[in-house]
Amino acid sequence: MRCGCDLGHTASNVCAAPQSVGVVGSYIVVMRHVDRLSDEALLGAVALDERDAAAVFIRRFQRRVYGLAVTMTGDAGLADDLAQVTFERAWRHAGTYDARRASVATWLLTITRNLAIDAMRVRRATPFDPDLLSQLLPASAGVDPQQAAVEADQLGRLGAELAVLPIDQRRAVLLATLAGRTASEIADIEGIPLGTAKTRIRTGLRRLRAAMAEVSP
């Protein structure tokens, strides 16, 4: 097996090409078929400054990241900025990713979420369109099968439990998580007292937590 670099190394999982990305004089793992890597392995490759891997990584996750940023901010321009910064942060902090705690997609989306929350502290987002909520539940079409399998696995019980939450709790939970709204903002959006909004978030989230604990203690 040729290693895939221009120098024609053979039969090894590495080559010592001196032109290796960013690591002159050192070694680089040969990247082949990066588009078929698992999410975890792909992130590992991104951490190696492998440009092809970064491109595949961005392509694989950009719709998710941008989609969440748009959902949270309601502002395409701001969402674009946040999504760009998300990938930069992911690249910088790839070494801190811990597969035991979260999937790569979840890890990446928490970066987007935190950026969006910070941005919205400064610049209030456009009012949330409650109709968007009704579109949030079904899994998006057009996801590649491998990704869909991973998601089904990740969401699994959580998705099922979310679907059977009372609608007012589900709306509150999704407004709080996907739209990044605080309890008092949710009280405004839903026209309910603050205490009621807090209770709905609390009850909904804790019910989901209990459902997940049954599966993965």
Binding site: W91, S103, L109, L158, L174, L208
Partner: peptide, 27 residues
């Protein structure tokens, strides 16, 4: 964990066409 995983439910939206090239240039 619940709050983080729920982010997977967010809709996926196609970003502007030059998104990938701008992100790569940034890296």
């Amino acid at each position: 964990m619940v709050a983080d995983r729920l982010l997977l439910v967010a809709p996926q939206i196609e970003p502007p066409a030059d998104f990938e090239s701008r992100a790569l240039a940034r890296l």
